[in-house]
Amino acid sequence: MGEPDRPSTARMIDFWLGGEHHFPVDVAAARAFEQAYGPCAPVFRALRAFLGRAVRAVADRGVDGFLVFGAGVPTMGNVHEAAPEATVLYTDVDPVTIRLGQRILAGSDRAGYGYGDATDIGTIDPAQLHRFVPGWGRRPVGIVFLGLAAFLDDATLSRTLDELYAAAAPGSCLAIDFDTEELAGYPEALAMMGPSFRMRAPASFRPLLGRWEPTEDGIVPVTHWRPEEPPPALPDAFHGAVAVRGDD
């Protein structure tokens, strides 16, 4: 795969996580963002740690198939590593990221990567969905929806989550994060996020979930969601939750 001429958020995050699947253009963009905001590695490592704890919690409920939207680079503690007994379908809309993900997972029989637009689940290849999330629509599955809510307006996000609720079987779980208003104090960094980026006040998070019911943990800063050790002192950039589909 040739070196890209434009940075990718997915590969920037891989850089911050200490991965190996990024390019100089991504490192330059990551450094520029840090100049405008501050160290990002601890923040994104905390978000990835939340992903791991959330996925393990869902797997402990007996879920053994996961559908991941906006998957980015499938390494560094991603879903198939957090739940090694499960099968996982990673999806994204960026063709470069999809090709990279397919190359990384080429030797895996438990995890696949394909195109999928979270706002239109019909875009997912049915054959891939059947292979890697075989219980979709019939038995509980895990849906991972990280890094996406901030790029959808309220109406689109609510509709998307409701469509996923309707499509998933009762007992399915949704792992989701929301961006807080942390970047409001960093206008240069906020400008780098682009016009579609949406910060939200924590009070707005629960209504957006609609029929999805958060676990008793609630929607909390990601470092405080079932921490396995004292939470680190980090900016309150992301809140996270696991929510469950009821029987209605």
Rank of each mutant, 00 (worst) to 15 (best):
R6K: 14
Y37D: 13
P42W: 02
D162V: 00
D120K: 04
E229L: 06
F69P: 01
A169I: 08
P232V: 07
P170Y: 08
R211T: 10
G112H: 07
D92P: 04
A10E: 06
T123M: 08
D248C: 02
A155D: 15
E188M: 01
V73Y: 06
P214E: 14
L129Q: 06
G107Y: 04
V244C: 13
H22L: 05
G137T: 06
A71K: 03
H21W: 12
I104M: 11
T180F: 12
Y165T: 08
F33S: 01
E228Q: 14
A233S: 13
G142D: 08
G65Y: 01
L190D: 13
R198C: 14
P95K: 06
G122P: 02
A59D: 14
L234D: 09
D162I: 01
A106G: 02
V93D: 02
R159D: 15
G185W: 03
E34M: 11
E229Y: 02
G142E: 06
V25M: 10
A59F: 05
P235R: 06
W225Y: 13
M193N: 10
P187Y: 11
A54K: 00
A184H: 13
F69C: 05
L183D: 11
A168F: 12
P214H: 09
G135Y: 08
V220T: 13
D26W: 10
D236H: 10
L89F: 07
E229F: 10
F44D: 03
D154Y: 00
P84T: 06
D92R: 03
E85F: 01
R48D: 12
I176E: 09
W16D: 12
A243Q: 08
A191C: 01
H80T: 03
F33G: 01
P214L: 10
T160Y: 04
F44W: 14
Y165I: 06
A203Q: 13
W16A: 09
R11V: 05
F33H: 13
F151S: 05
R139G: 10
P126T: 05
R138I: 00
I143K: 00
E188T: 12
T119H: 01
G240Q: 12
V58Q: 09
P7C: 08
F205M: 12
A166H: 03
L190G: 03
E181Q: 15
I219M: 09
L67D: 03
V79I: 14
P24N: 12
G147Y: 06
E181H: 10
E188Q: 15
E3S: 14
A10H: 00
Y37I: 14
D5W: 00
R159G: 04
W225T: 07
A149F: 06
L152Y: 10
F69I: 10
E163S: 09
R226W: 13
A175L: 14
G122E: 12
G246S: 12
V79H: 02
F50E: 03
G240F: 12
A167N: 09
E229G: 07
D177V: 02
L164G: 08
T97V: 15
R110E: 07
R61C: 15
P207E: 09
I121S: 05
A29F: 10
G18A: 10
V25F: 11
M193P: 07
A203G: 03
L174C: 06
W212V: 12
T180P: 07
R226C: 14
D179L: 14
A10K: 00
F69Y: 12
C173Y: 04
